[in-house]
Computed example of a mutant assay.
Amino acid sequence: MDSRLDYVLRIADACLIHGQRLGEWCGHAPVLEEDIALTNVALDHIGQARSLLTLAGELEGRGRDEDALAFLRAEREYRNVTMLELPNGDFARTVLRAFLWASFMKVLCQALATSSNAQLAAIAAKSLKEVRYHQQHTGDWVVRLGDGTEESARRMGEALALLWPYTAEWFADDEVDRQAQASGLGPAWSTLQEAWLAEVQPVFAEANLVPLAEAPFRSTGKLGRHSEHMGFLLAEMQSLPRAFPGATW
């Protein structure tokens, strides 16, 4: 696969899959206002995915549009990081994951503003306005739960213990990162770790959360090797377009 395509798909698929997961909260959030807020965040992610998948289709040059790339690929063709495909779990896990990813997207979009690909730079500039809100909104919830009741703090601690090890994948560079950096397409993700931690740590301090020590574990979603949860997610997401090929609204 073209390394430029792979690089863009890692961002596009992350937005797509996270949007799918957040959409599962529609009608199930703890309060009506948050039900609407999470749905809107999910829609923002889907909008980002649409723009990025359109760019990916152009880079691929095989005539596949955003819908074909979103719904008609095999599991191993998706390049999203593993954390975003994990089941939602409880509300604490959902908002912590969304905060961690929004913080990463913020520093990534800032870096992509100078991308050698004008289309990618424009998508990043537009997305930055959205991810700043996502980070603020979910960060408020991380603090509210982490510094809340004994029960909410326990749940936030459990969410951190589960999710934090998956962040190591984000900063594990490979040839795709190196070529993107060399060509000016975008930064190697490892170069964003310090800036990402600077975004995360003040919120963690308010929420009484302490990042875990780094462990050897590395998930491999960016390489197309996913968790056991990905197949079930895709089966639901792809059921309609596969049952009715070529269907349009």
Rank of each mutant, 00 (worst) to 15 (best):
A182K: 12
E228P: 00
E206K: 15
L163N: 05
C15D: 14
I46A: 15
V142L: 07
L100P: 03
Q238G: 02
W189G: 00
H45R: 13
E130F: 02
S183L: 04
G224H: 11
L96R: 07
P241F: 04
L185C: 03
G221Q: 04
M237Y: 11
L9E: 08
Q119K: 15
A121K: 03
A180E: 04
W170N: 03
H45D: 13
S183P: 03
S227F: 04
R155I: 02
A70K: 00
K126S: 12
N40Y: 04
R21I: 02
G47L: 04
A188Q: 01
L145S: 03
D13C: 08
L96W: 03
W164D: 12
S190M: 06
E151L: 13
L38V: 15
D35T: 09
L22P: 02
Q119C: 09
H137C: 09
F99G: 02
A56H: 10
Q110S: 09
E60W: 05
A213L: 08
V81W: 08
D177R: 07
C15M: 06
A172R: 09
M105T: 07
S115K: 01
R21S: 12
V95L: 05
E236Q: 12
T114R: 14
L145Y: 12
E236R: 13
A74D: 15
F91S: 05
A205G: 01
H229L: 03
A168C: 01
S127R: 11
D35P: 07
R225A: 14
S3I: 06
E77T: 03
L84F: 12
D173R: 10
K106Y: 13
D2W: 00
L55S: 09
A172V: 01
G231W: 00
E77P: 05
R93K: 13
R144N: 12
L55C: 05
A14S: 14
N40G: 15
A12N: 07
R50C: 06
Y78E: 00
H134K: 08
A124W: 01
C109E: 04
D177G: 10
V31S: 11
F104C: 11
S227L: 06
Q136A: 15
Q179D: 14
L59Y: 01
C26W: 01
L162F: 10
S183M: 00
L233E: 09
R62A: 11
A122I: 05
P165K: 01
G47A: 11
Q238I: 03
